[in-house]
């Protein structure tokens, strides 16, 4: 296309978060609502950067106890064997189930760490008004939305094993407090990526073009 980039914000418009209807941008402190679905209209997510930073910092802090404390303890014939997120993945690798071990490794370690790293990178790139590869950064954001919830697999796994395994003296599985912290990390990062507004990546560039 030959004409210069025109965004909704530059045209004095805003689009509804829920139903994507394009309406006039609310002025100042006006509280505007979407005529089609009645959701509040904001040109950009409110306080996106500070909310995302707060949630990312909380998730980083929670990630420490989430990996230090066991998520469950497997007791066989009376002797207990506590396992953390990382030792659980190791156990799966040693059992030789490679495809499944790889998926769980990605879901329980790569996804949470990668999500926090990507969010911090996106936040910093917006903070320092970066012009570098806005399209690639938008793709990174999309990856967060696509894969973010797969880390919940560890929380489900613990609840399934504890509910299923109660074989009296033979074997029992008890949950550990690590699962609480890990679950909190997953939920906090899910809210963090929802708080981030990818349009901020492009605003820097659009502002510069006029």
């Amino acid at each position: 296309m030959s004409r210069p980039t025109l965004t909704a914000r530059q045209a004095g418009l805003a689009s509804c978060h829920t139903c994507h209807l394009v309406v006039k941008k609310p002025q100042g402190h006006d509280k505007a609502h979407c005529p089609r679905c009645h959701s509040p209209i904001h040109s950009r997510k409110v306080d996106s950067l500070s909310r995302t930073w707060a949630l990312v910092v909380a998730a980083v802090i929670l990630y420490i106890p989430a990996n230090l404390y066991p998520v469950m303890t497997v007791s066989k014939l009376g002797s207990g064997d506590p396992s953390t997120i990382i030792s659980g993945v190791m156990h799966l690798i040693h059992s030789g189930m490679w495809p499944l071990a790889l998926i769980v490794f990605v879901a329980s370690i790569v996804v949470p760490v990668g999500k926090l790293a990507i969010l911090i990178y996106l936040l910093l790139s917006v903070h320092y008004r970066s012009f570098r590869k806005p399209k690639d950064r938008t793709v990174l954001f999309r990856l967060l939305e696509l894969f973010g919830h797969w880390s919940m697999v560890d929380v489900f796994l613990v609840s399934i094993l504890v509910a299923l395994v109660d074989l009296g003296f033979l074997a029992t599985i008890e949950p550990g407090v690590g699962v609480l912290y890990f679950g909190a990390v997953v939920i906090t990062t899910l809210f963090a990526s929802r708080a981030f507004d990818p349009r901020l990546i492009w605003d820097v560039i659009d502002d510069d073009l006029g």
């Binding site: 799966l92 769980v104 879901a107 697999v153 489900f156 299923l164």
Partner: peptide, 15 residues
């Protein structure tokens, strides 16, 4: 994701 949790639990309980 829950389905993946079920698969992993089957493998973990096999022994």
């Amino acid at each position: 994701v829950y389905m993946l949790g079920v698969l992993v639990s089957i493998v973990k309980l096999a022994d």
